[in-house]
Amino acid sequence: MSRINRTKLLDRQHDRRDAKLFIIATEGEATEKQYFGLFQSTKIKVEVLATGDDHKSAPQYVLARLNDFKEMYDLNDDDMLWLVFDVDRWTSQNLSSVCREAKQKNYYLAISNPCFEVWLCLHFSDLNPQDTSCKNFKARLRMLLGSYNSSKLDLSLYDEPKIADAVARAKQLHPTATQNWPPTPGTHVYRLVEILLQSLNK
């Protein structure tokens, strides 16, 4: 079966020759898709492959989703494929095997420990050492913002200066580029966001 041309993913607002594609397979069903929608522009197209109604969110399913997409589309060399998932409740062995396969396929990793809400918290403050679970980080967001609904983000809160703050804080927590995932609460989502921002500002 022949692959679908990548231009099928682009609409009239994109420069069909030069627009860069970011394919992001996520563990979450809604939160990440909303957040990464902030980066859409004429220069880049962000395609989020979120977990669907089957709720298959384990890292190996996120990886399989990205594999299937890559098989389906004829992508350019500078298009980037990313895995965005959480350490959460998965074992180190499970995470290591997924990371190993991803790197073999030249996919990029943006993993959060314990969950994506860590990245959202970093837009507004440094991490509180008492926060170690997803429940803690969701409660922290409610405290910082007054309310928090993971399926209905208030995107106006995540403006470019706040995003820059989040990148700086996340980098400070885990600056080592060789780590597959943060060994303590933190997130590598900044690795993806930095490249998105660079592509937007070219």
Rank of each mutant, 00 (worst) to 15 (best):
R3D: 14
T7P: 01
K8C: 12
K8L: 09
L9N: 13
D11R: 11
R12A: 08
Q13L: 11
Q13W: 03
R16K: 15
A19S: 15
A25W: 05
T26K: 12
T26V: 15
Q34S: 14
Q40V: 06
V48S: 11
D54I: 00
H55T: 04
A58K: 07
A58C: 03
P59W: 05
P59Y: 07
P59R: 02
P59H: 07
R65W: 08
R65D: 09
R65A: 12
N67V: 13
F69C: 06
M72F: 07
L75E: 12
N76L: 14
N76K: 15
L81T: 11
F85K: 11
D88I: 13
D88C: 05
R89T: 14
S92C: 01
S92A: 09
S92W: 02
Q93M: 02
N94R: 08
R100C: 00
Y108E: 04
I111Y: 04
N113T: 06
N113V: 08
W119P: 08
L122A: 05
D126C: 11
P129H: 13
S133V: 00
A139L: 09
L145M: 04
E160A: 05
D165H: 14
R169Y: 02
P175T: 03
W181C: 04
P182G: 03
P183G: 09
T184W: 10
T187G: 07
V189W: 00
I195S: 01
Q198C: 07
S199Q: 15
